[in-house]
Lab assay of single mutants.
Amino acid sequence: TEHYTFHTEEQAQRAAKKFKKQGLPVTIHEKNGKFTLQVN
């Protein structure tokens, strides 16, 4: 499991699309105004 932190939801969504294209499951969590992208 890898985690990436982004300052905006837009950045997180863009990164999520790249991972999803590779067939990886992705979840985004919002915490304290930051967005954490979790790749399993």
Rank of each mutant, 00 (worst) to 15 (best):
A16W: 05
K34A: 08
H3D: 07
A12H: 00
Q11S: 08
L24A: 04
N32R: 04
K31P: 00
R14P: 00
H29E: 11
Q11K: 06
T8Y: 04
V26F: 08
L24W: 09
K17R: 12
K18Y: 15
K20S: 08
K34Y: 12
H7P: 11
E10H: 07
G33V: 00
K17C: 15
K21Y: 07
Q38H: 13
E9S: 08
E10F: 08
H3V: 13
K20W: 11
A16F: 07
A12S: 01
F6R: 00
Q11M: 08
K21Q: 13
G33T: 01
K18N: 07
E2V: 14
G23C: 05
H29G: 06
V39K: 02
T27M: 08
L37H: 02
A12W: 02
N32E: 07
I28T: 02
F35M: 02
T8K: 04
Q38N: 07
K21S: 12
K31S: 11
F6K: 00
P25F: 15
I28L: 06
N32K: 04
E10N: 06
F35Q: 01
K34F: 11
L24T: 06
K31Q: 11
E2W: 15
E2A: 13
A12D: 00
K17H: 09
Q38D: 07
E30N: 08
K21T: 08
K31T: 10
Q13N: 08
A15T: 04
F19S: 00
E30V: 10
T5Y: 10
F35P: 01
T36I: 15
F19A: 03
F19P: 00
K18I: 12
F6G: 00
L37V: 12
Q38F: 14
K18M: 12
N40D: 11
T27C: 10
H3F: 14
T27F: 09
T5N: 05
P25R: 15
V26K: 00
L37R: 01
V26A: 05
E9L: 15
K18F: 14
T27R: 07
K18G: 06
Q11V: 04
P25H: 15
H7F: 10
V26N: 02
F6W: 04
K21W: 06
V39G: 02
H29W: 12
T5W: 13
H7Y: 10
Q11R: 06
K17G: 06
G23E: 02
K21D: 14
N40K: 09
T36Y: 15
H3W: 15
L37F: 05
A15W: 10
H3T: 13
K31R: 11
A15Y: 08
P25Y: 15
Q13T: 07
G33C: 06
E9N: 07
Q13A: 07
L24G: 02
K21R: 11
L24M: 08
K34V: 13
K34S: 08
H29K: 09
A15Q: 05
H7V: 09
F19D: 00
L37P: 01
V39L: 09
P25V: 15
Y4V: 05
A15H: 05
V39Y: 05
L37K: 01
H3I: 14
T1V: 12
P25S: 15
E10G: 07
Q13E: 08
F19V: 02
Q38E: 14
Y4E: 04
V39E: 02
E2G: 12
G23S: 03
T27I: 10
T5A: 06
V26E: 00
Q13K: 12
V26S: 04
G33M: 02
R14E: 13
N40H: 13
F19Y: 08
E10K: 12
F6N: 00
E2T: 13
Q13L: 14
E9Q: 11
K18W: 15
G23A: 03
H7I: 08
L37G: 01
E10I: 09
N32V: 02
F6M: 02
Q13W: 10
I28G: 00
E2L: 15
H3G: 08
E2R: 15
F19K: 01
V39R: 02
Q11W: 05
F6P: 00
H7D: 15
T8E: 04
E10Q: 09
T1Y: 13
G23H: 04
F6T: 01
